[in-house]
């Protein structure tokens, strides 16, 4: 249960990070908060001869708010984001963070690290997908942006190229009359969710003008439920949220694992979507 040996690099500039990734290629891995990487190394599921520790790159620890979005640097720790006034303008992000692990994990874990790690049961990839966040990647060719919808490829697989680092995530702001919710089913608080749903709505009068529904724990990536969103927007004020939940769940093919059967996950999917939407609508109306 001890990690294998590695060389530790602690650059202070993003250019040095990119240089080290170019130099060591597949032998190098970025170390942010380490709350997923270090357990995988301890369990010897992962071993890298070189770790590029980005904690001392000051430019990666900034949070900035513009008119349309809040940009969160890759190294911003979850506990800081949880308390940050700018992050509070992205309510879905602020609501999702307390669901991550335990406070002793969030004190070290980072926003960017969680998204780059791309665990399909984790919350922050789902937040990025739900809000159509833009992932900022920095590589040898400079900075490019990747839409969250194109970022998550499979379990622990992202659209980052070799030699690129996730340097920040831009979360778009939603307007007034919006509400958001995160609902999960987990055996114990802090466990990985067996299944979860994240929802956001913007109301125009009684009508839903904008909606996002994203599920976690039901596939190899977080899954955006576009058909259910469209049905919610098309439906009137008296839309049956159970129907929306069923539309969201219909295309899902969750897997069996030791924690829950596929059948169970399929069974509770509509209900968890309904719960998330109910809470989001309630908040939007208040």
């Amino acid at each position: 249960m001890k990690p294998s040996q590695f060389q530790h690099h602690a650059p202070e500039q993003i250019d040095e990070v990119v240089g080290l990734l170019a130099e060591y290629g597949d032998d190098a891995k970025v170390l942010a908060g380490g709350q997923s990487l270090i357990p995988m190394m301890a369990l010897r599921m992962a071993a890298y001869p070189h770790l590029v520790d980005i904690a001392r790159v000051a430019s990666l620890s900034t949070i900035s708010a513009s008119a349309g979005a809040v940009r969160v640097g890759a190294m911003v720790r979850q506990s800081r984001a949880e308390r940050d006034a700018s992050v509070a303008k992205v309510p879905l992000l602020a609501k999702a963070i307390p669901h991550i692990g335990h406070f002793q994990i969030r004190s070290r874990g980072t926003v960017g690290g969680s998204i780059a790690h791309a665990d399909p049961a984790s919350e922050l990839p789902a937040v990025a997908l739900a809000l159509d966040a833009r992932i900022e990647a920095t590589g040898p060719g400079g900075v490019r942006h990747i839409d969250a919808s194109e970022f998550f490829l499979s379990t622990w697989q992202t659209a980052l190229d070799d030699g690129e680092i996730l340097s920040a995530v831009e979360f778009p702001l939603w307007g007034a009359n919006s509400g958001f919710a995160v609902e999960e089913i987990a055996r114990r608080k802090g466990d990985f969710a067996l299944i979860g749903a994240l929802a956001g709505v913007t109301l125009d009068g009684a009508r839903v003008a904008r909606a996002c529904i994203t599920m976690i724990g039901v596939g190899s990536t977080p899954i955006r439920c576009h058909d259910a969103e469209a049905a919610l927007i098309a439906g009137g004020a008296d839309t049956d949220l159970d129907d929306i939940g069923r539309i969201a769940a219909a295309p899902l093919t969750p897997a069996d694992d030791v924690h829950a059967s596929a059948e169970y996950r399929q069974h509770v999917s509509p209900a968890i979507v309904r719960r998330a939407l109910t809470a989001a609508l309630k908040e939007a109306r208040s």
């Binding site: 270090i38 520790d53 004190s107 070290r108």
Partner: peptide, 16 residues
């Protein structure tokens, strides 16, 4: 506690 915040010392390399 690391800088006042509770953390798992098995998930932190001493170099960090």
């Amino acid at each position: 506690l690391i800088d006042g915040e509770a953390a798992r010392s098995c998930l932190v390399f001493a170099v960090q």
